[in-house]
Amino acid sequence: MSERIQSVAVYGAGSWGTALALQLARNGLDVLLWDINATHVENLNRQRENAHYLPGIPFPDKLHCSDDLPTVAAFADYHLVVVPSHVFREMLRKLSPLLNADAAVLWATKGLELETGKLLHQVLEEELPQCRAYGVVSGPTFAAEVARGLPTAMTVAANQPMLAQAVAAAFSAANYRAYISNDVLGVELGGAVKNVLAIAAGISDGLGFGANARVAIVTRGLAEIMRLGAKLGAQPETLMGLAGVGDLVLTCTDNQSRNRRLGLALGQGKSRDAAIAEIGQAVEGAKSALSIGKLAERAGVEMPICQQVYRILYEHLPPKQAVNELLSRDLKAEF
C-alpha cells in the first residue's frame, strides 16, 4: 500500500456513494464508481451527474462510472463499499475472487447484517479473509451537503494506522476534515444504532410531543449506545465523538435523515411500507432495528428505545402505546 492514495474504486452509486466519490475526485484522485444497474450507470456517464439522487451537481473529470465489476476491482488497490447493509455480504462475495491480499477495503455502509446481527467488519473477515487492511468511514454527514462541498467532518477508523491516515488524507480538503481512529467496532456501532434512534425521534415529533421528548430520546438513546459499546469493547471516546453522539444528533434532528422522516411518517399514522415507499431510498434504521435486537440480546444489554422501535415497525405496536410503555418503566438512577 502506498502512503498516498492515487485512485479509488467506489461500489454503490446511490446518494452516499456518489457524494463520497465526488469528494475524492475533487481532491484529485482517479475514481471509478460502480453500480449494478447498467441503465443507471449509462445515465451517470451520459449526464455527468447523478440526476436521480443528487441533481445539478456535475461530476469532476476524475470521476467515471462502470457496471463492469472486474474492471472496477482491477482499477485500484483501495476499495470503498457503499451499498446497503442487507447486501453488504453479497457485495463482498462478488469482490472476493477479484481482490488480492494487497487490497485495502473500506466501507461507508451503516448498519449490521440483518440475519445475524453481526458487525460489518465481522462479515468482511468471513468473506474476504485475504484482506489484511480494512476500515470504516463514518460520522455526521448528509450526502447532499458533502456533494455540494459544504463544510463536513467525519471519522476514518481502520485496523492499520497507515491506512486510516492515508484515507483521511484522501478525503480531507478545505471543506472536509477527516479524523483518525483505530476503533472500527465503535465507529460501526455509532453509525448503526443512531439510525434506529432517529426513527424514535421522528416518531416522537410526528406525534407532536415537542423538543423535551426529542432531547430525552437523544440522550437516553446515547446511553443505550454506550451500554452496548461498553459490553462489546468499543472505546467510550468514539461514542462521544463524531461517529457516535455527532452522528446521533445530526440524524435525530434534521429532516434530511431518511430514518427521521420514516419516524415522522409513523408518528403521523402512516404504515411502515407506505412511509418507506414515499421516501424512495433505503432506510437503514428499519433493517437495523431487527439486527440490533439480536446483537443486544447476545450481549445481554437492555435497549428499550430500540426495542420499542422494533415493535412499532414489525409488531404493529401503536406509537403512542410504545411511548407510554417507555414512560411507565420502573424509576431508576440515570447513571
Rank of each mutant, 00 (worst) to 15 (best):
V123C: 01
G233L: 09
A158D: 06
N255F: 03
V123K: 00
G14R: 03
E3Y: 04
R258F: 14
A103W: 01
Y53C: 06
I305V: 14
G191T: 06
M91C: 15
L124R: 03
R329M: 10
A211N: 08
S172C: 07
I36A: 15
A9P: 04
A101I: 09
M1E: 08
S288G: 09
H121P: 01
N43H: 12
N37Y: 11
S138E: 06
L264N: 04
F209A: 11
I312Y: 06
E90N: 01
I57T: 15
A274M: 09
E42C: 11
A277Y: 00
D67Q: 06
P70C: 12
L24N: 03
T71M: 15
P140R: 03
V245M: 13
A158G: 11
D68F: 11
Q281F: 00
W107M: 04
Y53R: 05
L313V: 07
L264M: 14
S172M: 09
R260G: 08
Q235N: 14
A198K: 02
L262F: 12
H79T: 14
N37H: 10
E297M: 05
G190D: 14
N175R: 13
A9N: 05
G149M: 10
V218G: 00
L239G: 10
A144R: 13
P84L: 01
G233Q: 03
K332R: 15
L185Q: 13
S288N: 15
A38F: 04
F171K: 06
L197A: 07
P161F: 11
E237P: 02
F171R: 01
Q268G: 15
D183Q: 07
P140N: 02
P304T: 09
L222V: 11
V283T: 07
M154L: 14
G202V: 08
L114S: 09
N324Y: 03
H121E: 11
D273C: 09
E125N: 09
V156I: 15
A51R: 13
M154A: 10
L266N: 15
D247E: 11
I312F: 11
G117D: 04
G12C: 06
I276G: 01
G135F: 07
I279F: 08
A201G: 14
E49R: 12
V215L: 09
A168I: 01
Q122F: 00
V146R: 03
V249D: 02
R48Y: 12
M162V: 07
V156Y: 03
Y179G: 04
L313G: 05
V146L: 14
S288E: 08
D205R: 02
K320D: 08
A198W: 01
Y179T: 09
G206H: 06
E302Y: 10
E284H: 00
G280I: 00
E315L: 10
L228D: 03
E42L: 14
A144I: 13
T251H: 08
Q281M: 14
R214C: 08
L44V: 07
H52M: 14
T219N: 15
A133K: 10
R311W: 02
A223S: 13
Q47K: 15
A76Y: 02
I305K: 10
Q308W: 06
V8Q: 05
A243R: 05
I199L: 04
L248M: 10
V193P: 02
